[in-house]
Simulated scan of single mutants.
Amino acid sequence: MHALIASPFLEQHVLVRPGSRSGALLPEERYEALRALDAAAPAPAWLTDAVREHWEDLDVTGRPAGDFLLVRQPSTWGYSKASWEVNLGCNYACKHCYLGLKVNSGMPWKDKRRCLDLMAEAGVLWLQVTGGEPTIDKDFLRAYRHAFELGMMLTVSTNGSLLWRENILRLFEECPPYRVTVSLYGATKASYDELTQRPGAWDLFVQGMNAARRARLPLRMSVIVTEDNAHQEAAMIELCRRWGVDHEVYTNMTPTIYGGGEVLTAQSKDHLSMRKQFTGCNAGHTFFHMDPHGLVSICKIGRDEQISLPQEGIGGFARLGAIADRLMLRTGGCSGCKLSGSCTVCRPLAKHFQEAKAPLAAYCQHGREDRVNA
């Protein structure tokens, strides 16, 4: 199994290591030298030096390059990142979940495998594997392993309830993830079980986190603050610190992917934060999202127009950039807005809130008392 990946990344080339946050830029000529290197040939001196500089515990001196190095081929499509909902099913029923209906359905394994192959062909180096809860999917283990073998740096977004399972821990040991992002829904059993609406969820979460910490997985916590657990925000942050795990706090709720506003009742009004000014993004141009049925959209929010990867194949990506440009236009309820130049949400997200009949304060400066006067 490879320990290093040399790959194109946007307009550059990088050397990265699964399970590690470190990486190095590769001059184009050295990337091309690695492409031409025979698998049985030993690592060149400059590569040995670079590995020693960035990863002291990894020694490749004199080793055949094929034993530790995977060289990703260039792609004409230019995508570098993607996210994939393996399924929408979950073993929790969180009140705030933007996925709405927890339908555990998706593609058969042969289509999942083909879609991963097409992602690699499109150039995807960083892949976020999410759900629903991805670890409950019957194909999670082999899908993760196949993506790893294709040379992807993998992030798994999970509730952590199954991280104690030996087959998952063994998989992560053999195929190290770039990151495991675990959502935190409370600092006590009562609050955690209440928000997830699953008795015993806290116990599984703690069991999973204890196992993940013992295995030294590259963890990051997503601290989810809602109306139910807002009083425990400080306690949740303290728990992350006590465990020695990096964290990020999320307070803003969004409608469901079906346009429903019912989950917005979980929003803590005191914790509704003003987003940063939206200055554009490369959704649909350098990254994309794929749902459980292989339908590709520009991102998790902008799902209005989707491309069926199983049906259209790699050629479907040719339409994605134009779809992104159309979805980003300021149309509909935002036409002529005097604050559009300093808007804090993209057009797809604003449309999402509007269709859910969400209060303006949830996404628009016009709904905030402290907004700039129009």
Score class of each variant (00 low, 15 high):
residue 91 N to E: 07
residue 107 M to E: 13
residue 367 G to S: 01
residue 39 A to F: 08
residue 373 N to I: 06
residue 172 F to K: 02
residue 75 S to E: 10
residue 319 R to L: 04
residue 317 F to K: 13
residue 267 Q to R: 05
residue 330 R to K: 13
residue 178 Y to G: 00
residue 100 G to N: 12
residue 11 E to R: 14
residue 120 A to C: 03
residue 136 I to A: 04
residue 122 A to R: 07
residue 283 A to H: 07
residue 219 L to V: 07
residue 112 K to C: 02
residue 269 K to C: 03
residue 221 M to H: 13
residue 135 T to G: 03
residue 227 E to H: 06
residue 66 G to Y: 04
residue 10 L to S: 02
residue 367 G to C: 05
residue 140 F to C: 01
residue 277 Q to F: 03
residue 237 I to D: 06
residue 352 H to Q: 01
residue 355 E to F: 04
residue 313 G to H: 13
residue 334 C to I: 11
residue 373 N to V: 11
residue 90 C to V: 04
residue 138 K to C: 05
residue 214 R to T: 10
residue 270 D to P: 07
residue 169 L to H: 08
residue 108 P to N: 00
residue 207 Q to W: 01
residue 183 S to P: 06
residue 232 Q to N: 08
residue 155 T to Y: 04
residue 89 G to F: 12
residue 127 L to S: 05
residue 143 A to K: 07
residue 179 R to V: 02
residue 164 W to S: 15
residue 88 L to Q: 11
residue 215 A to M: 10
residue 145 R to W: 13
residue 200 G to D: 05
residue 8 P to S: 03
residue 154 L to H: 06
residue 368 R to E: 12
residue 293 H to W: 14
residue 2 H to K: 10
residue 22 S to A: 09
residue 21 R to F: 13
residue 303 R to V: 10
residue 265 T to P: 02
residue 48 T to C: 09
residue 334 C to D: 03
residue 345 V to N: 07
residue 45 A to I: 05
residue 207 Q to I: 00
residue 138 K to G: 10
residue 236 M to E: 05
residue 297 S to Q: 11
residue 179 R to T: 10
residue 118 L to T: 01
residue 84 W to H: 10
residue 325 D to R: 15
residue 1 M to W: 00
residue 176 P to N: 07
residue 180 V to M: 04
residue 76 T to V: 13
residue 77 W to D: 11
residue 189 K to M: 05
residue 22 S to H: 08
residue 155 T to A: 10
residue 289 H to G: 08
residue 265 T to L: 12
residue 32 E to F: 14
residue 21 R to D: 15
residue 332 G to E: 14
residue 284 G to L: 04
residue 311 Q to K: 14
residue 18 P to A: 04
residue 26 L to D: 00
residue 152 M to Q: 07
residue 20 S to A: 14
residue 224 I to Q: 08
residue 42 P to C: 06
residue 125 L to P: 02
residue 11 E to T: 14
residue 273 S to Y: 01
residue 196 T to F: 06
residue 259 G to R: 13
residue 119 M to F: 15
residue 154 L to D: 04
residue 78 G to V: 02
residue 265 T to S: 14
residue 15 L to R: 00
residue 97 C to H: 08
residue 147 A to D: 02
residue 293 H to T: 11
residue 227 E to C: 03
residue 232 Q to W: 11
residue 101 L to W: 13
residue 172 F to C: 09
residue 93 A to I: 04
residue 130 T to A: 12
residue 112 K to T: 08
residue 50 A to D: 00
residue 343 C to W: 05
residue 170 R to D: 13
